[in-house]
Amino acid sequence: MYGTVRHEIRIQRPAADVWALAGDAERLCEWFPGIVSSAVDGTLRTIVTASGIPMPEEIMACDNTQRRFQYRLTMPVFKHHRGTIDVIDLHDDTTLVVYSTEADPRAMALVIGGGTAGALRELKRQMELTTEGAL
């Protein structure tokens, strides 16, 4: 059975700055609590969780124009998975970031989606820590 989870957060930082971090596939481990490494090889990304679980992923889209990043976890436990990060310019030097998770089985949407909620909080914390382009 299919499940969907969506989390969003507003960040006091221009969209281009947020996208520079959130749209960089290799830097996921910098802002997703519980992911200790994220290595990219072409369209394949392998993340390793803090509990030691390696999770292979396929990068499906990294659209610098729309500022959309999409990937899917390819572990056998998933009949379907799609993660989508949308970085939306609110045209007031702030940004809305939406992190959506679709999964079958549905419980995995909650398990992964719970992590994405924490990731958005960490992304906001890091982005608002400095208003300069130091990231």
Partner: peptide
Amino acid sequence: PFLDPFAR
């Protein structure tokens, strides 16, 4: 939560 692959 018990289901916690990210060990958060």
